[in-house]
Computed example of a mutant assay.
Amino acid sequence: MLQGIYIGDKDSVRLPYIQGLKWETIGLKEWVEEGGWPIRGDVVLFSAQSPGVAREVLKGLKEFLRPPSIPCLALVSSSLLSHEWLFEQVKDFLVEPFSQEELCLRLKKAIREVYGLKEEGLIKKGDICVDLRSHTVTVKGRVIALSLKEYELLQVLITNAGKTFTRENLLNRIWGYDYFGGERTVDVHIRRLRAKLGEASSHIETVRGIGYKFKD
Results as ranks from 00 to 15, higher is better:
residue 19 Q to I: 13
residue 32 V to M: 11
residue 94 L to T: 04
residue 151 Y to K: 05
residue 153 L to S: 08
residue 151 Y to A: 05
residue 22 K to V: 12
residue 205 E to N: 11
residue 9 D to L: 09
residue 47 S to P: 04
residue 107 L to G: 03
residue 164 T to M: 06
residue 8 G to P: 01
residue 184 R to Q: 08
residue 181 G to S: 02
residue 148 L to R: 13
residue 18 I to R: 03
residue 134 S to R: 01
residue 178 D to S: 14
residue 185 T to D: 04
residue 152 E to D: 08
residue 7 I to W: 06
residue 157 L to C: 07
residue 167 R to G: 12
residue 75 L to E: 07
residue 127 D to G: 10
residue 88 E to C: 05
residue 31 W to S: 10
residue 123 I to M: 02
residue 37 W to K: 15
residue 37 W to Y: 15
residue 196 K to M: 03
residue 61 L to S: 00
residue 87 F to Q: 03
residue 194 R to E: 09
residue 182 G to T: 03
residue 187 D to N: 10
residue 160 N to M: 05
residue 96 E to S: 08
residue 114 V to D: 09
residue 189 H to N: 14
residue 16 P to Y: 05
residue 68 P to V: 06
residue 80 L to Y: 02
residue 161 A to D: 07
residue 173 R to T: 00
residue 60 G to Q: 09
residue 62 K to M: 11
residue 162 G to Q: 06
residue 166 T to G: 11
residue 168 E to W: 07
residue 79 S to P: 05
residue 105 L to T: 13
residue 138 T to E: 06
residue 34 E to N: 15
residue 14 R to A: 09
residue 44 V to P: 02
residue 141 G to Q: 08
residue 204 I to T: 04
residue 98 F to P: 04
residue 25 T to H: 10
residue 198 G to N: 10
residue 2 L to M: 09
residue 116 G to V: 04
residue 61 L to G: 03
residue 77 S to Q: 12
residue 205 E to L: 07
residue 103 L to M: 06
residue 196 K to T: 00
residue 145 A to Q: 13
residue 180 F to W: 06
residue 17 Y to V: 14
residue 10 K to P: 09
residue 86 L to R: 03
residue 52 G to F: 06
residue 28 L to I: 10
residue 174 I to Y: 01
residue 88 E to T: 04
residue 214 F to M: 08
residue 127 D to C: 13
residue 128 I to A: 05
residue 86 L to Y: 02
residue 65 L to D: 08
residue 124 K to M: 03
residue 64 F to A: 09
residue 43 V to K: 11
residue 126 G to I: 08
residue 85 W to C: 13
residue 78 S to E: 15
residue 46 F to W: 12
residue 116 G to P: 00
residue 65 L to N: 09
residue 27 G to A: 12
residue 126 G to N: 02
residue 107 L to R: 06
residue 175 W to I: 01
residue 106 R to G: 00
residue 12 S to A: 15
residue 195 A to V: 00
residue 117 L to R: 08
residue 8 G to C: 12
residue 110 A to H: 10
residue 185 T to G: 09
residue 107 L to I: 15
residue 185 T to W: 00
residue 209 G to E: 01
residue 196 K to S: 08
residue 14 R to C: 13
residue 22 K to S: 14
residue 15 L to I: 10
residue 197 L to W: 04
residue 183 E to S: 12
residue 208 R to V: 04
residue 35 G to V: 04
residue 4 G to A: 05
residue 3 Q to R: 15
residue 112 R to K: 14
residue 194 R to Y: 01
residue 146 L to H: 11
residue 69 S to C: 09
residue 181 G to P: 03
residue 109 K to H: 12
residue 8 G to M: 11
residue 198 G to F: 07
residue 182 G to M: 01
residue 185 T to R: 11
residue 121 G to Q: 00
residue 25 T to V: 15
residue 21 L to T: 07
residue 131 D to F: 00
residue 20 G to P: 11
residue 148 L to P: 08
residue 197 L to E: 04
residue 154 L to C: 13
residue 5 I to C: 05
residue 44 V to N: 02
residue 82 S to I: 13
residue 182 G to V: 00
residue 96 E to K: 15
residue 133 R to V: 14
residue 154 L to D: 10
residue 184 R to E: 03
residue 216 D to F: 14
residue 105 L to P: 07
residue 198 G to S: 07
residue 82 S to P: 07
residue 76 V to S: 01
residue 63 E to Y: 12
